[in-house]
Nucleic acid binder design. Structure first.
Lengths: 344, 344
DNA sequence: CTGAAAGCGCTTACAG
DNA sequence: CTGAAAGCGCTTACAG
């Protein structure tokens, strides 16, 4: 038809050899196809008042025939568009990430934000991903790790919210504080008669994690002599391997506090394969409060993170950052909570 | 000049009645602050050639002082912008969703797409969420359920890719086919001497799921008389409750095939609490191939979905749909694969 | 109920 | 190395 060849030709109607990728129809294409002006098209497409039923029908028909979709850029330029949050995680396959993402996505939706999800765990792609993300969102939040260093020089004024980062960071952030929950757990372990507790940390021997240190201290303060053990990585498999060795000793531990729930699952698995009953022979606890901890048998005692609370703080910070209204504090803290289940 | 210097409170702290939400600085604000033209600002900000070091420094300084961030709309309008995929899941807390999302996010990133994640499981918010999503992405993919009905009339030409939808759907989609894996599992169960298998389905009695029907048929074809049982919902808890009843019988089953891995976890839990050993006393299998299945003890035998393959197909379809090049087929099928582990 | 004008913020040629 | 002009696709007043 004349209309469609004009559409594709864009000023060059008779251009021979239809292009492989046809240009997308614009509001002007629809307008001319329907024989109306562009703002009549706007009215029809956006379901606005001030348009006759018949005209609307005709316009929508033309729009449909041309597979017209309003450009989000054209529209966003004039309306401002929705706010966009970029959520960066280090490994979507670790169940921790999805549980956080779920909370953030829900909370964001309630506040009218969209969230773009990025996994920078991929080898080498992190730099490219962050670059493309920072061009598309209003605020970036997540576990940036080393990428937070030198942020301004690389990504200019893109606001950044760090999750569980170093306390000395200059960026906005939401931190996690396990100390109170660790005290509660230590109390509990003592109350049930624990004698030989082991703290199973993930990091390298020379960089014991904060929670590992805190747990050691809490147990020592209660008169126990906990042993500190390191897995070479924080995976269930490594935790399982280390546990298998430990429980084979002449005097095995009667409690293992794992760096996180995933590692605690590995501990549980090693205990089962060794024929040990949890919690009768040995008690096990993790950190994070992942949903799966309630699905395994025995159910896992844990220091749970309130992901919803983290998400709430994150969105509050995101709003301040977007609007440039720093408010009072750009750093928040969320405490872990002891959740006692079967394993301890 | 007067306007722009007032606008940025930065150089004009004492502006009376400073507005709650300050207008964001534009490229023109930076240009005038740095005393250059707008395209010189573009050159500096986008790290382009053809600008002196000194000018660039001055511009970036001004940009920084004004917290300037290029508008993604202004930029997208002229560059076209990245492609955006909208991923819709029904419940991010069900581990199935994140595993799918992880694969899609990774695959999309490799193809240069961004993905916006939306959870429509939220009560009542689905309609609003889909509306805002469809204005922001190029293609929508996911588990739409009832929302796929009447899509065109509500969301016009927004391309849609349905995951695991009815075969009679007119939309593009990626379907799952468990039939071959079900045969493999049936073979295995027979080979290890299963006598009294139970198929634990999730749906209501009058709407047995496709995989439930297929498993029943596969077992019957091998001379067994499987029993079909329904949980009132597909949660681990319901599965656990039903299992507890069944295994209490005089002649309990020696194998349970659960609708999905989550329910299989519930089965495992009920067995453990009843003192049954899996797989010695009873065999258990699920469907989905979730990561957690490999972390529990005993590890879970399952009919695994290759999420990466689903993601690959999804992105191929997304590209065709975005470009309006339908290619040969807009429907793909991915087969489950039997993964034998300890539980069966 | 409909349309002509202006402008959102940016980049891409093009001219100096 | 720098800037004046044009235009991306849309909506928001405003005028008929």
């Amino acid at each position: 038809m004349a209309g469609s060849s004009q559409l594709n030709g864009a000023g060059d109607p008779g251009s021979p050899g239809s292009p492989a990728t046809r240009r997308r129809a614009t509001i002007l294409d629809v307008a001319s196809a329907a024989g109306v002006s562009r703002q009549t098209v706007t009215r029809a497409v956006n379901d606005m008042a001030g348009i006759s039923v018949e005209t609307k029908r005709r316009v929508l028909e033309a729009a449909n025939a041309l597979s017209y979709r309003p450009s989000r850029f054209g529209r966003g330029l004039v309306t401002g568009g929705d706010s966009q949050l970029g959520l960066v995680v280090s490994d979507l396959r670790n169940p921790y990430s999805p549980e956080l993402a779920a909370a953030v996505v829900r909370c964001a939706a309630a506040e009218g934000w969209s969230v773009s999800l990025v996994d920078i765990g991929l080898a080498g792609a992190a730099d490219r991903l962050l670059h493309s993300l920072h061009a598309q969102v209003d605020v970036i939040v997540g576990y940036l790790g080393e990428w937070a260093r030198g942020w301004e020089s690389r990504f200019g004024a893109t606001p950044l919210i760090l999750l569980d980062a170093d306390a000395d960071s200059r960026h906005a952030g939401v931190n996690l504080d396990p100390s109170a929950a660790i005290e509660d757990l230590a109390d509990h372990l003592v109350a049930v008669g624990t004698r030989r507790p082991v703290v199973l940390d993930a990091s390298e021997p020379h960089a014991t994690s904060g929670r590992g240190i805190a747990m050691m201290a809490a147990l020592e303060r209660r008169g126990l002599s906990p042993e500190l053990v390191h897995a070479s990585a924080s995976t269930p498999e490594h935790a399982s391997a280390v546990t298998a060795q430990i429980i084979r000793r002449a005097t095995p531990p009667d409690a293992i506090f794992a760096f996180n729930d995933l590692m605690a699952l590995g501990v549980l698995s090693a205990c089962r394969h060794a024929g040990l009953d949890v919690p009768r022979d040995i008690r096990v606890a993790g950190v994070d409060g992942l949903t799966i901890g309630a699905l395994v048998a025995p159910t896992l005692t844990t220091l749970a993170v309130d992901f919803d609370e983290v998400a709430r703080h994150t969105l509050e910070l995101a709003v301040s950052l977007r609007d440039g209204t720093p408010g009072l504090g750009l750093r928040r803290t969320v405490s872990h909570r002891l959740v006692l289940r079967e394993s301890a």
